[in-house]
């Protein structure tokens, strides 16, 4: 199948447009929260929606390589923006939790230390910080082959982020497991097992 037309169309999407579309829900949701559109308890709703969007952008970022390798669809140009949008939503999610949800600094520290799902979420965030900082061209040039190695931290970060969602569910819930499943599939597609390698 000739994907060159699709790939050149994808390449022509300007990065600023992706940012505009990607950030729109952040602003929209905050506005909805302020004006009653997120229901009777907007804090948890905003926190959860930002967290879900972070996971969705994470999955989109992780999908870039398998899409290219297995289907020939090239989104490489947009991977940086997708990754940074993920980080933006993780940061929004964290800020809502810190400033609007828990509020009390002592309680925040206690929660990070005592509650496994929060410890895990925080670990995922910390793993993403160096990736966000080195997501520019200059760092890629400067770090050389070490850049690839460093950015493989996204793999454990994605597993921890999905696990964070699974662990906070009450009862047996399917949605968090779907996210974890998607992350695991996208990571498994990266394994270069001998019998899977194409001739």
């Amino acid at each position: 199948m000739d994907l060159s037309a699709l790939n050149s169309a994808l390449r022509r999407i300007p990065t600023w447009a992706l940012w505009l579309i990607g950030l729109a829900p952040a602003v929209w949701l905050f506005w909805q929260g302020l004006t009653g559109g997120l229901g009777a308890e907007p804090i948890k709703a905003l926190e959860h929606r930002y967290g879900e969007l972070a996971l969705q952008f994470f999955i989109a970022t992780l999908a870039v390589t398998p899409l290219r390798r297995h289907l020939g669809v090239n989104l490489l140009k947009h991977r940086q923006a997708l990754g940074l949008l993920c980080f933006t939503y993780v940061t929004c999610h964290l800020l809502v939790w810190l400033l609007l949800d828990v509020q009390d600094p002592a309680q925040i520290l206690a929660d990070i230390a005592k509650r496994p799902y929060i410890t895990i979420g925080m670990a995922a965030f910390l793993l993403l910080v160096p990736l966000a900082v080195t997501s520019n061209r200059r760092s890629i040039r400067h770090l050389g082959p070490r850049w690839r190695l460093l950015h493989q931290l996204s793999y454990p970060a994605a597993v921890l982020a999905a696990l964070h969602f699974v662990l906070l569910a009450k009862g047996f819930q399917i949605e968090p497991l779907i996210y974890l499943g998607l992350v695991l599939v996208l990571l498994a597609l990266r394994l270069r097992l001998p019998h899977l390698r194409r001739a």
Binding site: E41, P42, I43, L100, D104, Q107, R115, P116, L167
Partner: peptide
């Protein structure tokens, strides 16, 4: 007595909007 996953020391009253205090 905390829930294993969160503190029970405080609560948020429903209806206080986006900046409700605990």
């Amino acid at each position: 007595v905390d829930h294993p996953r969160w503190s029970q020391a405080t609560e948020r009253r429903i209806g206080g909007g986006l900046f409700a205090r605990r």
